[in-house]
Design a protein around this nucleic acid. Structure first.
Lengths: 338, 338
DNA sequence: TCACAGTATGACATCGATGTCGCTTTTGCC
DNA sequence: GGCAAAAGCGACATCGATGTCATACTGTGA
């Protein structure tokens, strides 16, 4: 109401039209460069728009055009974790090519919060929803999935829901890590895993175990530690492992956080056990850490691609893309049992 | 038009109202839990909404409520860079407390793209815009800044524009890095810096140089390398530096990418020069790398806080928050000149 | 019983753009 | 010069919600 407020309000198309001395519709046509506008009229309208500092109201446009925005939502864990941020980066790059923008929200690993974020995104009429779920119960998405908003699951398979997914070959990667250590002569191999209730972790645990079984090795069994959920906990766990008698001669950590913790624990040891970590990370080369690597950016890119295909009208059964893994030997995984 | 499309369309409030046998407005009141709705009516409306899988159209609501969304935009570099993702994480956490969501877009270090992303965000009527600018010319934001959309600059000061900003004490941090190395007895100290046209880099270069001047040291001058823009280039540059005769006894790298490159280059050296890097990074403790640290999450948090204050109506002159730095000695910066 | 406050509800305008349709005015061509 | 087609423009409805205001009903106190 005050002069201040008037300054703050953005001009509407109606005002631009009035200044240019044309009708609302003609102004709209001119700014959108639609055909059948006289060049002189077009110029007059655009000048008026510039003069007023006019900017289109995308909200109004989207309402009129079909109540659907050009936003794609991503619900994931904290972007401070390089895994999530690398995935987000891959998504963003792919979406941008199609003129779509990415909204991100952090579920804080809390299923309740995740649910309300998904709600918030759906109310904003995102075109697609990409989720790296924290929980296991995805039933609550079932209704949505059938109502025109495409869902893509990343890293964790949809549970009780037919939806596109991009997964990592967790079992395969973990199995090859196990085989790699076995081939190096290790038998007492410790497994340090995150929350076993999370599907990717289950896959990695199973893959590792199957490698052990295939080799007829049982010496690893006393050294299994699961539900290790953060860096500090991992560091503590590994410190405890290495002072056992007999101590494990090798350690397999099942994600980047746990590997970080293990590296901290092993830092000052004279004869550290061998170490293989799932997930590659920055500077692993400098540290000489052997990892099970996979292309995190590709996960995001592929997920965005699947989503875009659905947005563009693709129908058909749910697809699953599995991103392959490969061992990168950098030394830590090649230390022989002492 | 097909049956399929009909399935895909989300029901509108009008349809919910019809099913519940009440008027549009009453349905609106019931779902928003406004007063003066009979309990039985409220229940009937909510049941109808559930039955139809109704979800509010946030776009329509926002248009009606004032053409402004609950989104805040962030234009930054690639989230794959841990600096940007840490900042984004800090922003997102702070915004969430106020019910705001974060839209991110990567400017690819391109001023033109940045400009168009800002445009896109403004068209979507973001409540505030946070920018880690790639270019130096921020004039193009001047009109916007005065039109009610608060701007906050992160990491780089607004140029020719009065806007809130959150900066790092670049000069101070770099000066203390220089002093730290001088105190360790170094004289031939190499400076490896990123694009000197970017303000933060200028600040870091200036801070370093001022420390050298204050100490009356000139032996660093042959070892200045600026406009080193990526990890590979940094690695190459450092490889070239260490084989000079006389070689520098210490190196100061002015951001995380350059430090990474330097670490790669120095990896295999028997007697590496001392190294101090600007920006802390994951596993720097394990690598024993001395750094000039600062709280990246805090940068995001403070920026979001400033933005939120403006959104909430705060007016007044532009504010600048400077995030302090501190040296974390981990070994690499304490190696003495050979 | 009447007046009146308060409750429950609905009709209609509105936010700012775009789509449809219709009315003039040019333009092109025989 | 005449006529059809195309160009140029505007009036009005519309997207899906919310705000305003009017109205009908309910209960209470004099």
């Amino acid at each position: 109401m005050s002069a201040d407020d008037a300054n703050v309000r953005r001009p509407t198309l109606t005002e631009v039209a009035a200044l240019a001395g044309v009708s609302l519709k003609t102004a709209s046509r001119a700014l959108n460069r639609e055909p059948n506008v006289a060049p002189s009229t077009g110029r007059r309208v655009r000048d008026a728009a510039d003069m007023l500092g006019y900017r289109l109201n995308g909200i109004a446009r989207e309402l009129r055009r079909g109540a659907t925005s050009s936003l794609v939502g991503l619900v994931s864990g904290d972007l401070a974790n390089p895994f999530y941020s690398a995935v987000a980066s891959g998504i963003e790059r792919e979406l941008r090519q199609h003129g779509l923008l990415l909204i991100t929200a952090n579920n804080d690993e809390d299923a309740e919060l995740e649910r309300s974020l998904v709600d918030a995104f759906l109310e904003r009429r995102v075109r697609a929803l990409l989720v790296i779920p924290s929980g296991d119960d995805h039933e609550y998405l079932a209704i949505e999935g059938n109502r025109g908003v495409p869902f893509v699951f990343l890293d964790r398979p949809p549970d009780g829901l037919a939806a596109d997914a991009v997964l990592i070959d967790n079992a395969g990667g973990a199995r090859s890590a196990g085989e790699h250590l076995l081939a190096g002569g290790h038998r007492r191999i410790a497994l340090v895993a995150d929350l076993a209730r999370m599907a990717p972790q289950r896959g990695r645990i199973d893959g590792f175990v199957s490698a052990m079984h295939a080799a007829g090795n049982e010496a690893w069994e006393p050294y299994v530690r699961t539900d290790v959920h953060d860096v500090r906990h991992a560091e503590r766990t590994v410190r405890e492992l290495v002072v056992l008698d007999p101590a494990p001669t090798a350690i397999f950590t099942t994600n980047n956080r746990l590997t970080t913790g293990a590296l901290r624990a092993l830092r000052d040891l004279d004869t550290p056990p061998a170490l293989v970590g799932f997930d590659d990370f920055d500077l692993a080369d400098v540290l000489g850490t052997t990892v099970v690597a996979h292309d995190m950016t590709a996960i995001g890119r592929e997920a965005a691609r699947l989503a875009y295909e659905r947005i563009s009208g693709h129908t058909g059964p749910a697809r699953t893309i599995v991103i392959s893994t490969s061992i990168i030997a950098r030394g830590s995984g090649e230390r022989s049992p002492r």
